[in-house]
Simulated scan of single mutants.
Amino acid sequence: MSRSGFDAPTFSRIQSDVEEFLLGGPRCYTQSQIAEFAGVSRERADRLWVAMGFAVDDDPDAVMFTQQDADALQGIITMVDRGIISRSSEVAAARALGQSMSRLAEWQVSIIGTHIVDQLTESADDDPEAIRKQILRLGAEIIPAVESLQTYVWKRHIASSTGRNVGNPGEEFSSRILIVGFADIVGYTSLTRGLDPTELNDLLERFESASTEIIGRNFGWVVKTVGDEVMFAVESPRHAAEIALQIQSAVLADHDDPQLRVGLAMGPTLVRFGDLYGSVVNKAARLTSSARPGTVLIDSELAAAVSDDANFKLRHLRPRRVRGIDRLEQYVLRRNLEP
């Protein structure tokens, strides 16, 4: 067993220990119980949880929330009740916080993880239980320091932003195998010329809200949104395919809404400061721009990964030469509706 290759029971125990340390205790609430604690409906609690970028267990009786989770939910509801956050914008506020914190957490984990692996490499102890205790000790040393620094930077940004807006209210990196996707609104540029600011805001809010919920529910995360486009990532090929198809079927689904294009590519991806880089990102972007309105295009790597899944159908298209790629393999991804 290598230091980074723990057996499943040891790895599971380390994960549980780290979670309890970070969240102040074990999981003790179901979805219904945490909603009752905060005095809200389960649907509202789930909506806020998913908006922050987390998945909800398919089993409604699963014990998945800690006391800190319950206190945080109650804190959000209190802010809404006091008028600090309007009820109409609570999901948008939770989503904005979740997206920012998700990117920050990805970067911080790469720093902490690298340090812990370095420390373990220097240790001569190979006993799994001793390694587990060493990881917890290192975490107890590092995480409070990171939390303190993060709080300081946040407060400093609050002070800086307040100063700029007075009188106007209102190098760490890693490589991972990921599926990177883009979803964009077809004809966005011409569309904006025919919409007033309120209509455009409504369109973008519906686009971002629905796509973010689908991505979060399927264990992906939003990397960033830029105008008419959302960029996301996910580790599971099956979940990536589900995200793409659900976005096409459920986002901007009204008769008068513009159509969407979705492109996905799979492979080694550079994760740097919460953003993604590399040829996979380029391929996903090119597939998106090549896709016909209302369709999903994926690359050959992802096609191979989902080819045996009976939930999906693939159609191989003629390879294309696009900017930066001499031969772009492309497959149309559809849901298999046959019994």
Rank of each mutant, 00 (worst) to 15 (best):
S2F: 10
S4Q: 11
D7K: 15
R13W: 05
I14E: 06
Q15N: 13
L22W: 10
L23K: 11
P26I: 08
S41V: 05
D46W: 03
G53Q: 01
G53N: 04
V56S: 03
D57N: 12
D57Q: 10
D57C: 11
Q67G: 05
Q74I: 00
G75C: 07
I84C: 13
R87A: 13
R87Y: 14
R87L: 14
S89T: 15
V91Y: 12
A92G: 08
S102T: 12
W107A: 12
S110Y: 05
I116W: 00
V117A: 10
V117Q: 11
D126N: 13
D127I: 06
E129N: 08
K133P: 01
L136K: 02
R137G: 07
I142E: 09
P144Q: 07
R164V: 11
V166I: 15
N168W: 07
R176W: 10
F182G: 01
T189L: 08
L191I: 06
L200F: 08
L204C: 07
E205W: 05
W221T: 07
S236L: 02
S236G: 11
P237C: 08
I243R: 02
A244W: 01
A244P: 00
A244L: 08
L245Q: 05
S249F: 05
V251Q: 01
Q259V: 02
G267M: 09
G278N: 06
S279T: 15
V280F: 07
L287T: 00
S289V: 10
R292D: 12
G294D: 11
T295M: 10
T295V: 06
D299L: 02
S300Q: 13
A303W: 04
K313Q: 14
K313G: 09
D326Q: 14
L328W: 01
R335N: 06
